[in-house]
Amino acid sequence: MSTIQKRQKVVKSHPGLSLKQQCKLLEIHRSGLYYKPKGESLLNLKLMKEIDRYFLEHPYYGVERMTDYLNLDLGYRVNVKRIRRLYKLMGLQTIYSKPKTTIRDKTNYIYPYLLKNIKIDQPNQVWQTDITYIPMFRGFMYMAAIIDVHSRKILNWSVSNSMSAEWCTELLNDTVEQYGTPKIHNSDQGSQYTSDLYIAALKKHQIQISMDGKGRALDNIYIERFWKSLKYEKIYLNPPNGGLDLYQKVKEYIEFYNTKRRHTEIGKVPP
Rank of each mutant, 00 (worst) to 15 (best):
I118D: 07
M136T: 06
K38N: 14
T3C: 01
A145R: 02
I83N: 04
K116S: 14
V176P: 06
I146W: 06
D196T: 12
W157V: 10
G16K: 05
G75Q: 07
T175L: 03
D52P: 10
K116Y: 03
Y34N: 13
V10P: 11
P271D: 03
L19W: 07
L26G: 06
E224G: 11
T94N: 03
Q93G: 08
Y247N: 09
L17H: 11
L202G: 11
M211Y: 06
N241S: 08
S195G: 08
Y193D: 07
I146Y: 03
I118H: 04
P123Y: 00
T194D: 10
K106D: 11
Y133L: 07
P123T: 02
L114A: 09
H14S: 13
D174C: 10
K231A: 14
T94S: 12
K260I: 02
L202S: 13
M143Q: 03
I103Y: 08
W167G: 00
N117A: 13
E40D: 10
K100Q: 13
K119D: 10
L43S: 07
N44I: 01
G213C: 12
C168F: 00
G213I: 09
I103M: 05
S18C: 08
W167H: 14
W227C: 06
Y232E: 15
Y96L: 13
V126F: 04
S164T: 15
L237N: 01
N161E: 11
M66K: 04
E255H: 12
P15I: 09
V149T: 06
N186Y: 06
Y247M: 00
M1H: 06
K24P: 00
I95E: 12
Y34E: 07
Y222H: 15
G139I: 11
F137M: 09
R138C: 01
G91H: 10
E255P: 00
E50Y: 08
T129K: 04
P271E: 02
D73T: 06
P182I: 02
L218G: 08
E170S: 10
R82S: 08
G190Y: 07
Q248N: 08
H14N: 15
L43N: 02
N156T: 08
I254L: 02
I51Y: 03
W127S: 08
G215S: 12
E166R: 12
H185D: 04
A165I: 02
G62Y: 10
S210H: 11
I207N: 14
P99C: 04
G39N: 11
A201C: 06
N108I: 05
I83S: 01
D105E: 08
W227L: 05
F140K: 01
G190C: 03
Y247L: 05
I154W: 09
I184F: 09
P15Y: 09
R7D: 00
L72Q: 14
T101Q: 13
Y35E: 07
L25R: 05
R85F: 07
G32R: 02
I110K: 14
Y142T: 00
T175W: 01
G267H: 04
L86R: 10
L171Q: 00
Y193C: 09
K6L: 14
R82I: 12
M48L: 05
Y87W: 11
S164L: 13
G62M: 08
T107N: 07
F226Y: 11
S164A: 12
Q21I: 09
D196G: 03
